[in-house]
Measured scan of single mutants.
Amino acid sequence: MDVFMKGLSKAKEGVVAAAEKTKQGVAEAAGKTKEGVLYVGSKTKEGVVHGVATVAEKTKEQVTNVGGAVVTGVTAVAQKTVEGAGSIAAATGFVKKDQLGKNEEGAPQEGILEDMPVDPDNEAYEMPSEEGYQDYEPEA
């Protein structure tokens, strides 16, 4: 019985440690998101679009440190934060509304985080759909 109880105690310690790591990862992701939003706020009209992409990228980098179902929630929060940063930029006159959601080359930025393969159960990952990809044929 002692062996059984000791095993359960060790398992509990492992769960607590994993929860603490997840909590730490979420806190880091939130900190990076805040950094990115402050970065966007300090940019001029020309830099705002690039700044919004930076927020998304920093958040995406930190999301990889967070495991399990938390990833889905962090990704949703990050996307809403990026959308909010863009709205703030438009409201303050840093950028025109028609410039939001495009990178410096004018290509749409939507789907940055949505296409990231995420499995809350950590069982399997699927690649994003290939609808947006084109076949590449090298020139002879």
Score class of each variant (00 low, 15 high):
residue 121 D to K: 11
residue 47 G to P: 04
residue 106 G to D: 11
residue 115 D to S: 11
residue 133 Y to T: 02
residue 21 K to N: 09
residue 86 G to E: 10
residue 106 G to S: 08
residue 41 G to M: 06
residue 36 G to H: 04
residue 63 V to S: 02
residue 100 L to E: 09
residue 129 S to G: 05
residue 108 P to K: 07
residue 70 V to D: 01
residue 103 N to L: 07
residue 139 E to R: 13
residue 115 D to R: 12
residue 44 T to G: 06
residue 22 T to P: 00
residue 39 Y to P: 00
residue 133 Y to D: 12
residue 106 G to A: 05
residue 82 V to M: 04
residue 42 S to E: 07
residue 110 E to V: 12
residue 70 V to W: 10
residue 50 H to W: 02
residue 128 P to G: 09
residue 112 I to S: 14
residue 136 Y to K: 09
residue 134 Q to S: 07
residue 90 A to F: 15
residue 115 D to P: 05
residue 56 A to S: 10
residue 88 I to P: 01
residue 34 K to R: 12
residue 36 G to P: 03
residue 69 A to T: 15
residue 77 V to I: 07
residue 38 L to R: 09
residue 107 A to Q: 11
residue 114 E to D: 12
residue 136 Y to H: 01
residue 77 V to H: 09
residue 90 A to H: 14
residue 67 G to H: 09
residue 70 V to N: 00
residue 68 G to V: 13
residue 94 F to P: 04
residue 49 V to W: 11
residue 99 Q to A: 05
residue 58 K to G: 00
residue 35 E to I: 14
residue 67 G to R: 12
residue 127 M to Q: 10
residue 11 A to I: 08
residue 35 E to M: 12
residue 40 V to G: 04
residue 94 F to Q: 00
residue 60 K to T: 08
residue 58 K to D: 15
residue 86 G to H: 13
residue 30 A to K: 04
residue 30 A to P: 00
residue 67 G to E: 02
residue 62 Q to W: 06
residue 80 K to N: 08
residue 47 G to E: 10
residue 27 A to N: 04
residue 30 A to D: 00
residue 4 F to P: 12
residue 114 E to T: 15
residue 17 A to K: 13
residue 67 G to A: 13
residue 67 G to Y: 14
residue 134 Q to G: 11
residue 97 K to R: 13
residue 6 K to W: 03
residue 25 G to S: 10
residue 56 A to I: 05
residue 118 V to L: 14
residue 13 E to L: 05
residue 27 A to K: 15
residue 93 G to Q: 06
residue 117 P to M: 08
residue 52 V to H: 14
residue 74 V to R: 01
residue 79 Q to P: 00
residue 121 D to A: 10
residue 66 V to H: 03
residue 90 A to Q: 11
residue 2 D to W: 03
residue 90 A to T: 08
residue 2 D to S: 02
residue 55 V to T: 02
residue 59 T to C: 07
residue 71 V to D: 03
residue 4 F to V: 01
residue 41 G to I: 11
residue 31 G to P: 00
residue 43 K to E: 04
residue 127 M to I: 10
residue 103 N to G: 08
residue 44 T to W: 15
residue 17 A to N: 13
residue 85 A to L: 03
residue 5 M to N: 06
residue 139 E to K: 11
residue 20 E to I: 13
residue 84 G to Q: 09
residue 49 V to G: 04
residue 115 D to T: 12
residue 109 Q to M: 06
residue 37 V to D: 00
residue 2 D to K: 08
residue 36 G to Q: 04
residue 135 D to K: 09
residue 58 K to N: 09
residue 112 I to D: 09
residue 66 V to A: 11
residue 11 A to Q: 01
residue 110 E to T: 12
residue 125 Y to R: 07
residue 1 M to C: 00
residue 101 G to A: 10
residue 132 G to E: 03
residue 117 P to R: 13
residue 6 K to M: 05
residue 135 D to E: 10
residue 49 V to C: 13
residue 54 T to N: 01
residue 114 E to H: 08
residue 66 V to Y: 12
residue 46 E to Y: 07
residue 63 V to N: 00
residue 35 E to Y: 12
residue 110 E to K: 02
residue 44 T to D: 00
residue 24 Q to G: 06
residue 54 T to L: 05
residue 118 V to C: 03
residue 112 I to M: 02
residue 132 G to P: 03
residue 123 E to T: 04
residue 94 F to D: 00
residue 78 A to P: 02
residue 52 V to S: 06
residue 97 K to D: 05
residue 34 K to H: 04
residue 73 G to W: 08
residue 66 V to K: 06
residue 51 G to D: 02
residue 22 T to M: 08
residue 2 D to Q: 12
residue 71 V to E: 01
residue 119 D to G: 03
residue 13 E to M: 12
residue 86 G to F: 08
residue 49 V to N: 02
residue 118 V to D: 03
residue 7 G to A: 05
residue 66 V to D: 00
residue 53 A to Y: 11
residue 140 A to H: 06
residue 42 S to Y: 05
residue 74 V to K: 03
residue 40 V to W: 03
residue 11 A to T: 15
residue 100 L to H: 13
residue 65 N to M: 01
residue 123 E to M: 02
residue 135 D to H: 02
residue 137 E to Q: 03
residue 28 E to H: 06
residue 135 D to A: 02
residue 36 G to L: 01
residue 74 V to S: 00
residue 16 V to S: 14
residue 65 N to H: 09
residue 79 Q to G: 03
residue 26 V to Q: 00
residue 91 A to M: 12
residue 26 V to T: 09
residue 116 M to L: 06
residue 60 K to Q: 03
residue 31 G to Y: 14
residue 97 K to C: 12
residue 121 D to L: 01
residue 7 G to T: 14
residue 16 V to N: 08
residue 124 A to E: 05
residue 52 V to G: 00
residue 55 V to M: 10
residue 36 G to W: 12
residue 53 A to N: 11
residue 117 P to F: 14
residue 9 S to W: 09
residue 140 A to S: 13
